[in-house]
Design a protein around this nucleic acid. Structure first.
Ligand SMILES: [Mn+2]
Ligand SMILES: [Mn+2]
Ligand SMILES: [Zn+2]
Ligand SMILES: [Zn+2]
Lengths: 139, 139
DNA sequence: CATAATGCTTAGAATGATTATAATTTATAT
DNA sequence: ATATAAATTATAATCATTCTAAGCATTATG
């Protein structure tokens, strides 16, 4: 009894209307939105929604492993509903974050591998996105 | 005249005692300290040092390309005097950040490479550092 | 049904990192 | 020496995020 509760602690949670609204917005969303981005959109539909609820929900989902918290933007956290292994490209001109599929094999140098237990990795690519490239060409 | 000034704008700046104290602390430092880490140490030696000066200096150095600002720690910015291309391993247990030399060839998938202008990349490795590994074994 | 227990939402306060402001000090140029 | 510009300082302001305390909703209990 206690053990089952313990095991699912954090991974099971009530599907409240607010949470569903957030989940629905995130479903398939590849824009890597910030908490504020999410609040702006979801609170429009869901009148009484509080900012605190957005943060609570994001933290709950993250702890439950249903959401990935990205540290790529120095200003704020970004959230990614795609929890599969993949990497990101951030456009240094407009700030957009695009997905990069994980095809790339990356390994720690041997001497490092002996000292560390490697759990995972994330590559941040920096560059110019296609829409910014077009804009630049235009002028 | 104007053009030369323009060119060196941001890259040339006065070597004040405060800045030298910060530079000296950073010289060869591989601990990837935060602004507060730096302030704590440097202000001990340099009495009147203000926190604002630390931030100002770090921003100036970063803009001048003499310092790298790391986004790897979600809580605060970290600073790295090593501006050469290299990657980082962050220990998820103790938070320490270690350097990983750039030996690893990483390329964008072809279809992506056509759309983006790639300027650089940074790999964050997650894992357990050797000292945490030892501690864990001990118990 | 009544009531208690639990978990969620809410508004607003608190926190912590970082930036902005305005006055003062230091360095540089005339 | 006087003016000009740049840097430092203390402090206030800002912004993202977390915390708090009160109320609400849902489920369990009798
Ligand atoms: Mn993604
Ligand atoms: Mn480094
Ligand atoms: Zn762009
Ligand atoms: Zn460690």
């Amino acid at each position: 009894m206690k053990q089952i509760q313990k095991k699912n602690e954090g991974t099971r949670f009530k599907r409240t209307p607010q949470r569903l609204a957030i989940l629905e917005y995130l479903e398939g969303n590849t824009s890597h939105p910030s908490a504020e981005d999410i609040f702006r959109v979801v609170s429009k539909r869901y009148q009484s929604m509080s900012f605190a609820t957005v943060y609570n929900t994001l933290n709950t989902l993250t702890r439950a492993g249903e959401l990935r918290e990205l540290t790529i933007d120095p200003e704020r956290k970004r959230y990614d509903p795609d929890t599969s292994r993949h990497h990101h490209l951030i456009c240094v001109l407009c700030g957009k974050i695009a997905d990069i599929p994980e095809k790339i094999g990356v390994e720690l140098p041997k001497d490092m591998a002996e000292h560390f237990v490697l759990l995972g990795h994330h590559i941040e690519f920096y560059g110019h996105c296609s829409s910014c490239r077009k804009k630049n060409k235009a002028k």
